[in-house]
């Protein structure tokens, strides 16, 4: 499978990364090299094999659904690029 430039632009859009026209060609070549490499997985027969999603040899642990933390608004906002009072501020999204 080989990516065309329109697909590269579509992926960049999905990934929320702005790419210039000049970058599209370079990315297309690099991404196709990686996809070409991983295509070798097509030789492997995986019939009846379950997917392995995690690295842990255990079931996901559950805990009581209770509040364990909080009252940290200032800590959480301390790194905000922009804030208005106790809120994160972003460019206007509704006219």
């Amino acid at each position: 499978m080989s990516l065309d430039s329109a697909t590269v632009r579509r992926i960049a859009k999905l990934a929320r990364i702005r790419v210039d026209d000049a970058e599209v060609g370079v990315l297309q070549t690099e991404l196709n090299a990686i996809l070409g490499y991983v295509d070798q997985l097509n030789e492997v027969n995986v019939d009846g094999v379950a997917p392995l999603s995690g690295g842990a040899q255990m079931a996901m642990r559950l805990r009581e659904d209770t509040v364990t933390d909080g009252e940290q608004a200032e800590n959480i906002l301390a790194n905000a690029p922009d804030r208005v009072g106790p809120f994160f501020a972003v460019p206007k999204v509704v006219e």
């Binding site: 929320r16 905000a80 690029p81 460019p91």
Partner: peptide, 19 residues
């Protein structure tokens, strides 16, 4: 995404800012 922490580059709108 430039909202809660880290660097931000301003844009024309929210999506443009993310990108």
């Amino acid at each position: 995404d430039g909202v809660r922490f880290g660097a931000r580059v301003d844009g024309e709108d929210l999506i443009d800012m993310y990108e």
